[in-house]
Design a protein around this nucleic acid. Structure first.
Lengths: 113, 113
DNA sequence: GACCTATATCGATGGTTGTCAATATTGACT
DNA sequence: AGTCAATATTGACAACCATCGATATAGGTC
């Protein structure tokens, strides 16, 4: 499933509270919010963000959350599809990094006035 | 179901990206995000926010969204439980108003550094 | 009280989603 | 080629959720 990346979804629009949203604006924003509205995914973002270079290896993400490796992989895919993180493979390892500004664009949409 | 209001859920904490979150912090934040991660609820917030005094009657909320009245009522309850809006009844009508600062507290948690 | 209007609650239903176990893929190393 | 380690994908299942129709509640008016 391809998903409108956050940055594009947010580049165009007035804040949530300025004007009544259209249905498709609401759909896009809801998709972005759904992508981060999960405890496991929030913790993944949080760990990645706190890591050096805002980048972390999957091997460092599996233990702290107490869920299986396939589930971690699934959550990382959701975050990637939504445009919050990017994946780069180096050797056998996969590194996930925050997309700079992605969370901020989203946050800006929620601020009132 | 009682839910930790956004304001309280966010009053205490460092931004999402400063430090690794605990499980319960992630649970709370995810609940707040889930509450607004729905197109119908985003449009409700949006319409309320764009109204005079950031307050709107349910009667003005049912038509624009093209969903049934019980569904609108359900979404408003979710938003109320999560602390984004408050309900006040005047006569036969129910008015929902934005909780000042609720969305902003949430947004602040998402901003990086 | 009887009736109407506005809103809330209940029960059911179809669709989505988080999780897991099992398996596949990919890359490194001998 | 063969093996091992890291990660991704698949298929299944239970839990959750958005929506609806039907009904209940509450306030106003006659």
């Amino acid at each position: 499933m391809t998903l409108l990346p956050v940055i594009e979804a947010t580049a165009c629009c007035a804040p949530l509270t300025r004007d009544a949203m259209t249905q498709s604006q609401a759909d896009d924003l809801a998709k972005s919010l759904k992508a981060i509205a999960d405890p496991a995914r929030l913790r993944l973002i949080s760990i990645i963000a706190a890591s050096e270079g805002q980048e972390a290896c999957v091997c460092d993400l599996t233990e702290p959350l107490e869920i299986g490796q396939p589930t971690v992989s699934h959550h990382l895919k959701v975050l990637t599809d939504a445009g919050f993180v990017t994946r780069s493979k180096r050797g056998t390892w996969a590194y996930y990094a925050l997309v700079p500004g992605a969370l901020d664009s989203l946050a800006r949409l929620l601020v009132t006035a």
